[in-house]
């Protein structure tokens, strides 16, 4: 397995797509999480209006270091999940597109060892996405505080670690779904298409249909969907300015972690089943 991990790491760390996906996540964070918001509240329009009745100066607090975890997770967190799904689908689907799957399977490792190496490297890359995500968010917030002449007060280290761990779990879960689809469809395009469709559309449509039933089991069922749990986990870190009428998350952070961990294990097991059973033609 160590050999497979080394080979996989050598391959993926040199693959431009891996770092382009990470780059997109960070650029989105900088632009949408900080730069545009800072411009909006620093140079407010004449007819500036906030739904919560907050002033630009009050809103600016969201961009300071003390709030960097909450601010960065809102909105951009889901993009990280989508990009991780693409990462997993590309890592597997391209092997079929290039025919390199047969090159891998005719070297020494067993198929399961090769898969384990791949899972390890994907875990490492998604961890690096997560660390880079919060490092860049912290840097942006520090720069903004410095520009505004504010002292940098940071959240508790444990909160930062929890947020990094939560985002890693979410990124890892979606990347493994992408991998499982990659093995199932033996290509990247369909794995990415169906994966993103599920992430952004299918679960939403399903909830809309389910909510048509006026029954108590509906909310119970919804608690077990991956997207719902990912949203609940991100939401558990709270918002800088909570909306008064917003519904609480369906599940607690602890429950969401358990459900997402189970999904992650199920996606890995599904990949292993397909890898073991399929002929390489």
């Amino acid at each position: 397995m160590i050999n497979a991990f080394k080979a996989e790491w050598r391959k993926l760390r040199q693959r431009p797509a891996v770092w382009i996906l990470g780059g997109i996540l960070l650029v989105a964070l900088v632009l949408f999480g900080y730069a545009f918001q800072w411009i909006q509240v620093t140079f407010p329009a004449k007819n500036f209006h906030n739904e919560l009745g907050l002033t630009p100066a009050q809103l600016k607090v969201a961009l300071y270091p003390v709030n960097f975890v909450k601010n960065s997770l809102v909105g951009v967190g889901i993009l990280g999940g989508a990009l991780s799904l693409i990462l997993g689908a590309l890592a597997v689907g391209s092997e079929f597109g290039w025919g390199t799957v047969k090159t891998v399977y005719t070297q020494r490792p067993s198929r399961i060892q090769a898969l384990a190496g791949q899972l390890g490297v994907i875990a490492l890359i998604t961890a690096s996405y997560s660390v880079a995500f919060f490092a860049v968010a912290a840097l942006c917030s520090w720069i903004i505080a410095t520009i505004d002449g504010q002292a940098a007060t940071w959240p508790a280290a444990i909160d930062i670690l929890k947020a990094a761990g939560a985002s890693w779990l979410i990124f890892g879960c979606w990347s493994l779904l992408g991998m499982a689809f990659g093995y199932l469809f033996r290509q990247s395009a369909m794995a990415i298409g169906i994966g993103l469709a599920y992430l952004f559309v299918i679960e939403g449509i399903l909830f809309r249909v389910l909510n048509g039933f006026d029954a108590s089991w509906v909310s119970t069922v919804e608690k077990f969907f991956a997207g719902q749990n990912a949203s609940a986990l991100l939401g558990s870190f709270g918002r800088v300015f909570p909306s008064p009428g917003a519904a609480p998350p369906l599940v607690s952070a602890g429950e969401a972690v358990i459900v997402l961990a189970i999904y992650t294990a199920v996606f890995a097991a599904a990949s292993a089943l397909v890898v073991r059973a399929r002929d390489v033609t």
Binding site: A7, K11, Q14, G99, T100, K102, T103
Partner: peptide, 15 residues
Amino acid sequence: AFYPYLSGRENLKVV
């Protein structure tokens, strides 16, 4: 079948 973005030498290192 090898990785098109890697050099010949890097591909052999992967193998």
